[in-house]
Design a protein around this nucleic acid. Structure first.
Length: 93
DNA sequence: GCTCTGACGATTT
DNA sequence: GAAATCGCCAGAG
């Protein structure tokens, strides 16, 4: 299992209505400080069906990046029942 | 092995 | 609250 594969696995495990920060994902895959690398992997991936990358946000609650833009990401999250305050996620960690 | 790049993070100004 | 700074890790060239 490469780093990327572990990331995919974790992200695909995020349930609907839930979000995870890049940091948390990084911790889950074994490297607490590799949030950057995590985002890097997600950016390369575009499999929206198997990997809900829109459920991954920044640690400060800010929406990270998204191929379709932050607005699109926010809309998707809202649709799944996640509260958004302006540009930030108000998920219950 | 080194250098760049990037959907990041935390701190400071 | 925004921008600058430094640190951090993995992949690509």
């Amino acid at each position: 299992m490469s780093f990327a594969e572990r990331v995919y696995n974790v992200v695909s495990n995020i349930k609907e209505g839930k979000v995870m920060t890049y940091r948390q994902v990084a911790e889950k895959v074994g490297s607490p400080k590799s949030a950057r690398a995590v985002g890097n992997v997600l950016s390369k991936n575009r499999d929206f069906k198997n990997i809900p990358c829109h459920r991954v946000v920044r640690s400060d609650g800010n929406i990270g990046g998204y191929v379709r833009g932050q607005d699109k990401k926010i809309r998707l999250l809202k649709r799944e029942g996640i509260m958004i305050r302006g540009r930030k996620v108000v998920d219950n960690r």
